[in-house]
């Protein structure tokens, strides 16, 4: 049962996931390319090689977080997309409790998250092995892959939960988010004319602090994503 559902999930997700998988393997390689075959001369006053490696790691670190978010989102949405198309009638007619059906789907998606992370880890490890790092820097393929795994799993769980509901629920949730994003600030500014604490309230900052800082649900996407660091 679980294997069949995993196969189905992969069928639904494979084409959108293909470029993501390529990126998951290739971006760590690109992150370390500055350090492949590099030589560092102690007689040379400039340690620009180390700067190039850390700068490259910092730039690509951002892309790792984005790839994790995209991979998790695609897997979360595609878990339910085929069911949605025929209104869940097939799934509801199967002789399996609904919670078990959801759990099997979630488990299948988690396996696909693991596979994506494995590919990422392979790219990161390969990049680390090929890199010639100055003695001040080290590679973190293990820690980075763990970070990628948890980030992808978080995005997957969030979109899985959202996509499992009705289109109406998803529309309401996403509509509220978009509405806040677009109209929230001007509305607060307008209401601030009548009650000043509202006008002083920084919605963007509050949302960022709640979601990303202070151990919020999206805080995993922040933090240190550098493959090479001190």
């Amino acid at each position: 049962m679980g294997i069949q559902m995993l196969k189905l999930h992969w069928r639904a997700a494979r084409w959108p996931m293909l470029p993501v998988l390529v990126a998951a393997f290739g971006l760590p390689l690109m992150a370390g390319s500055a350090a492949w075959g590099a030589t560092y001369s102690v007689d040379h006053l400039s340690a620009s090689g180390a700067v190039a490696v850390t700068d490259g790691a910092a730039v690509f670190g951002l892309t790792f977080a984005i790839v994790a978010a995209i991979a998790g989102s695609i897997l979360g949405i595609s878990a339910w997309s085929w069911d949605h198309r025929q209104d869940h009638v097939y799934a509801l007619s199967l002789p399996v409790p609904r919670w078990k059906y959801s759990a099997l789907k979630f488990g299948g998606g988690t396996i696909l998250v693991g596979a994506t992370t494995a590919l990422f880890a392979l790219g990161a490890t390969t990049s680390s092995l090929l890199a010639n790092l100055p003695a001040g820097l080290r590679a973190y393929p293990g820690a980075l892959s763990l970070h990628f795994l948890i980030a992808t799993q978080t995005a997957f769980a969030l979109l899985f939960a959202l996509a499992s509901g009705t289109m109406r629920t998803a529309t309401i949730v996403l509509g509220c988010v978009m509405g806040l994003a677009i109209f929230g600030v001007p509305l607060l500014d307008f209401l601030g004319n009548f009650w000043s604490p509202l006008g002083d309230f920084d919605l963007v900052r509050f949302a960022y602090a709640t979601l990303v800082e202070n151990d919020g649900p999206l805080s995993i996407f922040a933090g240190n994503w550098m493959l090479f660091d001190v």
Binding site: D83, H88, A91, W99, Y101, A103, L158, S164, G165, T169
Partner: peptide, 8 residues
């Protein structure tokens, strides 16, 4: 949360 599918 995800396991509590609303499409019961």
């Amino acid at each position: 949360l995800a396991l509590r599918s609303t499409r019961w």
